[in-house]
Design a protein around this nucleic acid. Sequence first.
DNA 1: CCTGCGGATATTGTCATACCAATCGGAGGG
DNA 2: CCCTCCGATTGGTATGACAATATCCGCAGG
Lengths: 236, 236
Amino acid sequence: MRDRAAEQLLDMVVSGGLSPGDRLPPERELVQRLGVSRTVVREALNLLEARGIVSIEHGRGAVVSDGSTSAVRDTLGMLLRMRAEVLWELLEMRQVLEVEVSGLAAERAGAEDVTAMRAQLDRMRALIDTPEGYVHADVEFHALLARAARNEVILTMLEPVVDLLRASREVSASRPGSARRALREHEEILRHVEEGNADGARREMRVHLANTAEDIEAALREGTLEVTENREREPT
Amino acid sequence: MRDRAAEQLLDMVVSGGLSPGDRLPPERELVQRLGVSRTVVREALNLLEARGIVSIEHGRGAVVSDGSTSAVRDTLGMLLRMRAEVLWELLEMRQVLEVEVSGLAAERAGAEDVTAMRAQLDRMRALIDTPEGYVHADVEFHALLARAARNEVILTMLEPVVDLLRASREVSASRPGSARRALREHEEILRHVEEGNADGARREMRVHLANTAEDIEAALREGTLEVTENREREPT
DNA sequence: CCTGCGGATATTGTCATACCAATCGGAGGG
DNA sequence: CCCTCCGATTGGTATGACAATATCCGCAGG
């Protein structure tokens, strides 16, 4: 019954013309409209919240979520906690997606994309000695690259993977010399993107990710890296 | 409170020495142990179920799940449904993932994978004149290929995309000659996989998906297939 | 007229209880 | 020895009440 109600609610959202930010009817009204008890309505809403469709706020109601991928990240994160070996699969997935993203970006990036990425590279250069800030800038660069690829679906799948690997990256970025090497590689990638050289961009990204994966493996061997998930809810 | 209870339960699972298949204590006992009402316990259990940690079975209890990826698949599926993604983006995503899957499968497939795929090709050959059954067998073949690639994460993320494209495929598969052509292409792919020729497998898969996409486009032009979004590639 | 305060109202969160539904196991009869 | 049925265990649903939080509106004061 819960699943049936959740399906009805999902239909209300997708084919009911509700946009992100809109509020669903209150629980007591959904009780009448769906003809089930409040218990079932609440469980259905909780399921949709766990799936990232809506966000339930105390005293306000259930609002349609923007297409945030945090639910996918959380679910993947718990999977990682139960089976640590999926870390390798995640790294491979990231490689598959980002290599292709580089190629697509080289074919589709506009001047404004290149400008934004160049500015981001400057920021990375400035933060190169503070691992935490550097990784943040690094992640942002990859996000800009993904946006230049002009494919929301790829972004939807890549985002949670990258999020999940962020902790690993912070450790690997603090290894001596790796940040500077990564910066050079980013510059190479951007150069190829700017020239519209898709194959070159793919090749450079493949090299870059191989090096990064090597850093992560090394950090794992040294025991510096703990494979856990930091579950923190968004701070409003 | 629900999240706190869920965290406690998750700790019970991961650091409590519970293996997949083990049963958690019944709800009424967790009520006493956690000091909260049954409502909260149930909501926490539902959250863990949505995240794929446990599987709740009526009359039996909550059993610790193996690290199945079905929760990730469901979450992604709902997310994609809500975003009503553009058809060409889905096709591109499918191409990115499946081309790489073919390459990985060529490197990693064992004899039993090849056997299963060959059997699946026979089934497709038998169903070649019934579009519906053929597409089902087709999907199954691609699933076997993905399994041979030995990366569950990629498989998990590919599935929702394929699901959304299924309707398009049923239409395109009914175009004259396309099913037979697709069958030949599948045979080529399998041949390369069998020989361990990763690049060849990638190339053949790329050809196959390009042809399939062409079929879908043609069906779109003929109005056989209705889609709300139109394909616009170039940004402003 | 504007501002800030306070209460009324709406809405979700938690609790307690009762009963329904599915599953399992063991007692009893064939 | 096997089958059946019944009771016990366990999750599923319904209901009503109250608490916690957010929103809105009117009113007093400037």
